[in-house]
Deep mutational scan, measured.
Amino acid sequence: AKPPKTVTVKVEVTNADGETQTRTVTLTNLPKDLKPGDTVTLPETGQTARIVEITP
């Protein structure tokens, strides 16, 4: 079996106070056609994050 493909992405997350924070997260099994501006759900927090940058 192939190991899951991990991708490092820079995302913007809005916290409970309405502040936008930029975080770098490593995600696995992202859709192939994901692009900056799309939103993903962070598995560890369940927060919705907007992708700023994808590092191949």
Rank of each mutant, 00 (worst) to 15 (best):
E44A: 09
A16G: 09
T24N: 04
L34T: 07
T26D: 04
A49Y: 06
E44Y: 08
G46V: 02
P43Y: 05
R23E: 04
T8K: 08
T48Y: 06
E12Q: 11
T26N: 06
A49P: 00
K5R: 15
L30I: 14
A49S: 02
T6W: 15
P56W: 15
N15S: 10
P36E: 08
E12F: 09
G18I: 01
A1I: 12
K10M: 10
T55A: 13
T8M: 10
T55I: 15
V40L: 11
L34F: 06
V11M: 04
T39L: 14
P31R: 13
T26I: 12
V52D: 00
V13A: 02
L27S: 03
Q47A: 05
N29E: 06
I51M: 01
N15P: 02
L30F: 15
V11H: 00
V11W: 04
K2Y: 13
Q21T: 14
N29W: 10
V52P: 00
T48W: 07
D33M: 08
N29I: 05
R23P: 01
P3L: 07
E53K: 06
T24H: 06
P43Q: 05
A16Q: 10
T26P: 02
G46N: 07
V25G: 01
V9S: 00
T55E: 12
K10A: 03
D33T: 09
A1V: 13
R23G: 02
D33H: 12
V13W: 15
R23Y: 15
T22Y: 15
Q21R: 08
T28S: 11
L34Q: 02
P31C: 10
V13E: 02
T14A: 05
P3I: 05
E12A: 08
V25R: 01
G18F: 02
V9I: 11
P4Y: 05
P36G: 02
V7I: 12
T6M: 12
V9G: 01
T22M: 14
K32I: 13
T24K: 04
Q47D: 07
T22R: 08
V13G: 01
V13D: 01
G37F: 02
I54L: 06
E53W: 12
T41L: 12
D17Q: 12
T14Q: 09
K10E: 03
A49T: 01
K35S: 05
Q47G: 04
V25H: 03
G37M: 02
L27H: 02
T22W: 13
T8G: 02
L34I: 12
T8V: 11
G46S: 04
N29D: 11
E19T: 15
V52I: 14
E53M: 08
L42A: 01
T24P: 01
V52C: 03
D17W: 12
D33F: 10
K32D: 14
L34E: 00
P3C: 08
K5E: 11
K5W: 14
N29C: 09
A49R: 00
T14F: 12
E19D: 08
K35R: 09
V9M: 11
T22N: 04
Q21S: 12
Q21M: 14
T24L: 13
T41M: 11
G46W: 03
T20E: 03
K32F: 14
V13H: 03
T22K: 04
D38M: 09
P36C: 06
I54Q: 02
R50Y: 11
T22H: 08
V40C: 03
I54Y: 05
T6L: 11
A1T: 13
E44P: 05
K5Q: 12
K32R: 10
V25D: 01
G37H: 01
R50W: 07
D33I: 07
E44G: 13
E44S: 09
L42F: 05
T55D: 11
Q21E: 15
T28Y: 12
G37Q: 01
K10Q: 05
Q21I: 15
K2M: 14
T14L: 11
Q21N: 07
P4D: 11
T6A: 12
T55C: 11
I54C: 03
D38A: 04
A16C: 08
T55K: 10
T22C: 09
K2E: 13
L34C: 05
T45I: 06
K2A: 13
T48F: 09
V7G: 03
E53A: 10
P36T: 06
V25A: 03
P56E: 13
D38Q: 04
R50H: 04
T8I: 14
G18E: 02
Q21L: 13
L30Y: 15
A1N: 11
K35F: 05
N15D: 11
K5A: 12
K10V: 15
T20G: 03
P43M: 07
T39S: 08
P36L: 13
K10P: 00
R50K: 12
L42I: 10
D38C: 03
G37Y: 02
L42N: 02
V25P: 00
P4H: 12
